[in-house]
């Protein structure tokens, strides 16, 4: 408590300055930057930093910037706005990277919703052996092995990774829509 008070007394920055530093740090960070880390670097409390980020994100929106600050995978990240992807691709001369196959996406969906999920559990839902899909997902670091399940055969369990959250633009797993919401769309009823 004493230490906390000391740092509090040291605070002489205005909110404007904090916003600027936060912006600079998010700019240089390679990965989504967590509020906790920002607070440590700035030696400010988390609430102040959180408020600064939210204000910063609003500023970007207000002036319809080409950039956006978003909350991804438990941190904040600076990225371009989706609307300008055509121009950016033309400039970078890149094409959208190869999409995952249907089999890989289905497997990923099962793992994302059922994690930790084992190979037999994936087989039960997909009705197909998914070994190559699982390998693809592991290679792309979208899933990680989460130890073995203490059941017959001790199958390996899989869960989604932080990269999954980043690549699919999710704050955390709870942002995924509930699996039950996908039930109403059943065709042929």
């Amino acid at each position: 408590m004493e230490a906390a008070k000391e740092t509090e007394e040291k605070q002489t920055r205005g909110i404007g300055e904090i916003i600027s530093i936060v912006e600079a740090l998010i700019f240089v960070a390679d990965e989504p930057l967590a509020v906790k880390i920002l607070a440590e670097v700035l030696e400010e409390d988390k609430e102040t930093v959180q408020a600064a980020i939210e204000e910063l994100a609003r500023e970007y929106e207000r002036r319809e910037s080409g950039l956006q600050i978003r909350e991804i995978a438990g941190g904040w990240q600076l990225g371009t706005r989706t609307e300008f992807h055509d121009e950016i691709r033309r400039f970078l001369k890149t094409r959208p990277s190869a999409k995952l196959s249907l089999a890989a996406l289905e497997t990923l969906a099962v793992i994302a919703y059922k994690q930790p999920a084992t190979v037999p559990e994936i087989l039960e839902i997909r009705g197909v052996q998914s070994a190559s899909a699982i390998k693809t997902l592991l290679d792309k670091r979208l899933i990680v092995a989460k130890g073995r399940k203490e059941t017959v055969g001790r199958p390996m369990q899989y869960g989604t990774s932080k990269d999954f959250l980043i690549q699919f633009g999710l704050k955390d797993l709870s942002e995924l829509p509930s699996i039950e919401d996908f039930g109403d769309l059943t065709g042929g009823v």
């Binding site: 996406l105 997909r126 996908f182 769309l185």
Partner: peptide
């Protein structure tokens, strides 16, 4: 299975 197919579509 249908649910997860739809979920896969959402992920796509």
């Amino acid at each position: 299975h249908q649910k997860f197919k739809n979920a896969a579509e959402m992920l796509y």
